[in-house]
Amino acid sequence: MSVLGRIARCLRPRVLGFVALMAAAGVCGANQGAVYSSGNLGPTILKAPGHCVRPTEWMRHNHMKLLLEERTEWVRQGIRDRKDSLENCVKCHAADAPNGAVFGAKQDFCVSCHNYAAVKITCFECHSAKPKGKVPAFHPLYGPMGPHGEGANAHGLALMMRESASTGRLGLGASK
């Protein structure tokens, strides 16, 4: 067993915990068959047009691993022809969303499931939750001049940041 193998073994419990959470969400969803919704108990997941790069069940359990692999190639080597990039996920999963994004409102693709599984995702603090080509709307707390410019709701922003800091949760309520 190599050094890296050992490191991988040490890390495994963390990964397993994460997978277990996702599995919980996946099982609830699977009870309802092909409609990606689980009635009153589980998250209601928006269906995306077209076919996913992997089977849905596999994705429920493994999408984070896929994205981890992909991001390393994308960022560090500049390999940008992978179909399973976050950019492509967003393109498809935001297509039919009411606000055209995968993150922001409660019903959005990424949020619905992660909220249910109590997983905090930070992807969209940096990544755009909307696909390329569309004009992104401004965050409701910000004016068109940025967080400190004209029209910005500084009080609301401070409140949201304080709330996120004390609860460790994303300020999802703020997007209403």
């Binding site: 940008r80 950019e87 940096c126 755009s128 967080p147 400190h148």
Partner: peptide, 26 residues
């Protein structure tokens, strides 16, 4: 220093990170 919104989908960037010119690698 501040939260970032409205990123270029090709250039993810956000609060808390160092950054600099990357010759527009995208």
């Amino acid at each position: 220093h501040h939260p970032v919104t409205d990123q270029n989908p090709d250039v993810p960037r956000g609060q808390g990170c160092a950054e600099s010119c990357d010759f527009c690698k995208h």
